[in-house]
Simulated scan of single mutants.
Amino acid sequence: MISRRHILQIGGGFLAGLAWPRHMHAAEAVEIRMQGNQDGSHVWFDPVGLRIEPGQTIRWINLDSGNSHTVTAYHPNNFDRPLRIPEGAQPWNSDYLLPDESFSVTLTVEGVYDFYCIPHEHAGMVGRVIVGRPGPASASPLPEQAAGGEAIPEIALRAFPSVDEIMRQGVVRRV
């Protein structure tokens, strides 16, 4: 005969098992698509703004059949660009991704991370990821130029969603 206690233990184990996929879901990679219209006159990251938790992975995938793209952190180690990722965070540069190729990065330091596509920065192909819940200092304007570096084009600066917008919505899409 099965006791009431045994049934409760089985039921508790079953409920704990149902909760497991949720935890796994939080650890899954988040995808940002690199896209462009058919004639190549407009290119973008989708989403353009995203908030994730520390330790989460982002996977960029090139879904633009007519262009190769990069995903490159704004950092002095990447072509002497301005520092627009948190101090102590590791910069990245995917190199050129052909259609259907992808690149992944795991971000662990809380803060604001700005990135761009090397050949399409002048077309405004930039994006922003917020990791965790950065303090007020992270919401202040980021530098536009590093010493001796090239200024970020105005079209790119206008394309970044605000930190407040990303924190409010979690995901910002613009096409």
Rank of each mutant, 00 (worst) to 15 (best):
P82Q: 10
P82I: 06
P82H: 12
L83Y: 03
R84I: 14
R84D: 13
I85G: 08
I85H: 01
E87Y: 12
E87Q: 15
G88I: 14
Q90T: 12
Q90N: 07
Q90C: 00
P91A: 11
P91G: 09
P91K: 13
P91S: 14
W92Y: 15
W92P: 03
N93F: 09
N93M: 07
S94M: 00
D95N: 11
D95P: 00
Y96N: 07
Y96E: 07
Y96I: 01
L98E: 09
P99R: 07
P99N: 01
P99H: 01
D100W: 01
F103A: 07
S104G: 04
S104M: 09
S104D: 03
V105L: 01
V105F: 07
V105D: 02
V105P: 00
T106F: 02
L107W: 00
L107M: 11
T108V: 02
V109F: 09
V109T: 15
E110H: 05
E110R: 09
E110C: 08
G111L: 06
G111A: 00
V112F: 04
V112Y: 10
V112W: 05
V112T: 11
Y113D: 06
Y113R: 12
Y113H: 05
D114F: 03
F115D: 12
F115V: 04
F115L: 07
F115C: 09
F115E: 04
Y116A: 14
Y116H: 02
I118Y: 13
I118M: 08
I118K: 02
P119T: 11
H120R: 11
H120V: 02
H120C: 08
E121L: 13
E121V: 15
H122R: 14
H122G: 08
H122D: 13
H122C: 12
H122S: 15
A123E: 10
G124T: 07
M125G: 09
M125F: 01
V126S: 08
V126H: 14
V126A: 06
G127D: 08
R128P: 12
R128W: 12
I130W: 13
V131C: 10
V131F: 06
G132I: 10
G132S: 13
G132R: 15
G132K: 10
